[in-house]
Write a protein that binds this DNA or RNA. Structure first.
Lengths: 154, 154
DNA sequence: CCAATCAGGACTGAACCGGTCCTATTACCC
DNA sequence: GGGTAATAGGACCGGTTCAGTCCTGATTGG
């Protein structure tokens, strides 16, 4: 299944949206433009800022801005920013329960080639690629862009 | 994070183990050989049998057997067998809630290139590759192979 | 006929995730 | 200088999903 968190999808939406708009954008503003609830947008942006995918400016008239072009942001970076490091096994991401302590981990290294292949695949796709794969209808005329199901709830 | 289910890891262990042994193997036998709890092994084998990765023989003296060589089993098949189809978004795997009904899905197609890249990456790695990437110490002398943490609990 | 084994589903307890909210802290503007 | 608008960074709760177990059939060999 390889489930990807929904937050990561929101992050892509927000980043693409951010590239469509000029200047500094606030998180309430982006929430309105994307239809994603404001607290959620804020959470996503905080994570993205911590990973330097966007730069933040505090205070009144503050907001967020892209630090680089969409074509310079591999999707792997976005996933790593929201979901943490890309790895498939619990073994890799320090669950720490008995694996290292025993010195003998049966699955040590087994998934390494797989992780590597996935990481490589995700690094070769940029947000610009994903933006292009969107249907033209959703490519941000004004605010018809995002979460239609959210809009229905309002 | 891209979490992969633990069952899938078990499946790899069992399949590799199965290729090390001659003839038909029972699920209690494989449980003993791998250290994985028997009900869990049985569950995994049922799924693998349903996907034709192993063939089953019922009745007394029955058991499981590999249907093809490890080098002919891409890891993508194992993941699909245990975790279901490989797709990252909830949208793809029929959650059905309002997405299609509205005719306008904002994330429609956005993740397609990513899914495709991942699927391709996972299809290019076979179980034989994963077997080789194991440390020699764990490559099945007798039953030193698997879950060391399980063995410790017995 | 009996025992061993697979088939298939139901069930439960625990972990994870999405989403919200609250309290600082910073910077602009009057 | 004070008020306001915005980010920073947590803590927190509810729902969902998953790992693991068990139970009841169906099948086959002795």
């Amino acid at each position: 299944m390889l489930r990807l968190s929904k937050l990561t999808d929101y992050a892509v939406v927000v980043l693409v949206r951010l590239s469509d708009m000029e200047g500094v954008q606030t998180s309430p503003g982006l929430a309105g433009a994307t239809g994603i609830p404001e607290p959620t947008v804020a959470k996503v942006l905080k994570n993205l800022a911590a990973s330097d995918l966007v730069s933040s400016q505090r205070g009144a008239r503050g907001g967020y801005r892209l630090t680089r072009d969409l074509s310079s942001i591999p999707i792997a970076d976005v996933i790593a920013s929201i979901d943490g490091p890309i790895a498939l096994t619990a073994c890799v991401e320090g669950s720490g329960s008995g694996c290292e302590s025993q010195g003998l981990c049966p699955m040590r290294g087994r998934w390494d080639p797989v992780n590597e292949a996935i990481h490589k695949a995700l690094s070769s796709i940029t947000l610009a690629d994903m933006q292009m794969s969107l249907l033209p209808a959703f490519r941000a005329p004004d605010l018809a862009h995002p979460a239609a199901f959210q809009a229905a709830a309002e």
